[in-house]
């Protein structure tokens, strides 16, 4: 359930309408529409989903049902620096879990959360195809390979030099 109520600006509603139009307002293009909308907004707040439902003439419940089915779609804004820990099998076998726990401890947050200051969000992802570098951590577009729990503090500090 969306906890924060947001008000969409005119340019934002226009943008969503344009996205829907570009897919011919076709019900079958819902997932493509959601991808594009998430690309634009960074996440898919309830208000955006409602608008899409109205445009594609489907129920908001259906849109929400689709959004919550796929892990790629998010209803909470990501942090400025989204941290993703690969928990694919290769990374797991090489200690991804201890790395993940270290991030949780250092950032004092759980997987799937965004810190209240909006700086970091923490998520797990499955296999980025860099098993040779396992365990792998991504912060934004930057990839860190062979990460050990001891490296975690350093990685975080890169993005927050003044300390936590």
């Amino acid at each position: 359930m969306s906890s924060v109520k947001i008000e969409l600006r005119k340019d934002q509603t226009d943008k969503i309408h344009t996205i829907c139009d570009s897919f011919g307002n076709q019900e079958g293009e819902l997932i493509n529409v959601l991808h594009k909308s998430q690309e634009t907004f960074g996440y898919l707040p309830a208000e955006v989903q409602e608008l899409i439902a109205e445009k594609l003439e489907i129920s908001a419940a259906k849109v929400y049902g689709v959004v919550t089915f796929y892990s790629f779609f998010s209803m909470t804004p990501k942090g400025e620096f989204p941290i993703s820990i690969c928990t694919g099998t290769a990374c797991y076998v090489r200690g991804a879990e201890t790395v993940l726990n270290e991030f949780k401890k250092q950032l004092e947050m759980e997987v799937g959360e965004t810190r209240t200051d909006g700086k970091f969000s923490l998520s797990c992802l499955r296999c980025v195809g860099a098993c040779g570098l396992a365990p792998v951590v991504q912060v934004g577009d930057k990839t860190y390979g062979r990460v050990a729990p001891d490296d975690v503090k350093g990685i975080i500090e890169e993005y927050l030099p003044a300390g936590l």
């Binding site: 129920s59 908001a60 419940a61 259906k62 929400y64 919550t68 892990s71």
Partner: peptide
């Protein structure tokens, strides 16, 4: 009516 739909996974 479209009030209900399967949600989550």
């Amino acid at each position: 009516v479209g009030a209900l739909h399967a949600v989550n996974r």
